[in-house]
């Protein structure tokens, strides 16, 4: 295992470039639109789960309402492009910023809350957004939703085929990874992680935890909004049922299965969950049982997720005995 890791670190640039090449050429290999749709779904959920991972995985807050921010982004995009004729490229950042603003507002009253109480508030927020979308008919179309959301146009070409849209989604995910990895390598990322690890100690070292928690929430919500805005034209139709709590829980399951607090984890989680749901479709409703069993087994065997490190607070908060002994003997 360690050998594998070392090789990956050694040829990091090579692996990244090879991975990028594969990702860029993927639409040429997968010719069928149906399959390409699955790939696009993976990308959408990977980004959504990653944005949730910012909040849950890095600062240790427990947000269950990611579907709410996703909905804010999607509806902003749908309303502005369909009813007001704005260009997608203008609406996109606007939608992200609006979701970020929502995230900021939700974070304010929740700064004093932790754990399950924070979860309740975010859960409630997500439902409020969904109910607003369902009932505010003049703006959101109510139960009818919004149809015929225009596809983005780039260089005079309308991107409506999944093969083309794939690149927008891929770009979103890559941009997210690039920016986030830079933030995590700065004092901001370290402050987030310190809050997750031991918030009292972080405070005693001058980390303003309220400020960083709310910054974290805002940032996570921003990306949920961004992917929401990219999602709306892709499906061409939004209604409130797409943003139920289930969506939020799906994203959460991906984060947990893939590995919280790692950049690659939610992406792996998204691939695993999407492949499972599609390949088990023949089982009809039974697939949810299988899905649930996998999550339970996962929590049992590998609570830190597929990509998570075993020596992490997310793996159940135990320091491995063997490494501790090694440390002690080295010290003597």
């Amino acid at each position: 295992m360690k050998k594998v890791k070392n090789t990956i670190v050694k040829y990091k640039l090579f692996f990244i470039l090879a991975g990028l090449a594969i990702l860029l050429l993927l639409p040429l290999v997968i010719t069928k639109s149906v399959y390409m749709r699955h790939v696009c779904n993976v990308l959408i959920f990977a980004t959504l789960a990653s944005s949730l991972n910012i909040i849950n995985g890095y600062s240790g807050q427990m947000c269950l309402g990611q579907a709410g921010f996703f909905a804010v982004g999607a509806y902003t995009c749908a309303i502005l492009t369909t009813n007001y004729g704005w260009s997608f490229w203008v609406v996109w950042p606007v939608a992200g910023c609006l979701a970020a603003l929502m995230g900021y507002l939700v974070s304010l009253p929740t700064l004093r809350l932790q754990g399950i109480y924070l979860s309740f508030v975010t859960l409630g927020f997500s439902e409020i957004i969904r109910i607003i979308a369902q009932t505010w008919t003049p703006v959101t179309g109510g139960n009818m939703g919004i149809k015929g959301i225009p596809f983005p146009i780039i260089f005079g070409k309308e991107l409506f085929k999944p093969h083309d849209y794939y690149y927008i989604l891929l770009a979103t995910l890559l941009l997210f990874l690039f920016i986030t990895s830079r933030i995590l390598r700065s004092r901001i990322g370290r402050a987030w992680i310190s809050i997750r690890e031991e918030s009292n100690a972080a405070r005693s070292l001058g980390v303003e935890i309220s400020r960083y928690k709310s910054m974290n929430f805002t940032y996570g919500a921003f990306w949920a909004g961004m992917i929401g805005a990219a999602y709306a034209p892709y499906v061409n139709f939004v209604d409130s049922s797409q943003f139920s709590l289930d969506t939020g829980f799906d994203a959460l399951a991906m984060v947990v299965i893939g590995g919280q607090g790692t950049l690659i984890g939610p992406i792996i989680g998204s691939v695993v969950v999407t492949v499972l749901t599609e390949s088990l479709r023949f089982l009809q409703y039974w697939r949810f049982v299988i899905y649930a069993l996998i999550i339970i087994a996962m929590m049992w065997v590998r609570p830190q997720g597929i990509a998570g490190a075993s020596n992490s607070i997310l793996a159940g908060g135990k320091i491995r005995r063997s490494s501790r002994k090694k440390a002690i003997s080295r010290n003597r």
Binding site: I193, S194, E197, E198, N200, A201, S204, L205, N311, S312, I313, I319
Partner: peptide, 13 residues
């Protein structure tokens, strides 16, 4: 600056 009676390190960092 201070330290704590019951050590409060970032154990996993």
């Amino acid at each position: 600056a201070r330290t704590f009676q019951n050590i409060q390190l970032f154990k996993f960092m």
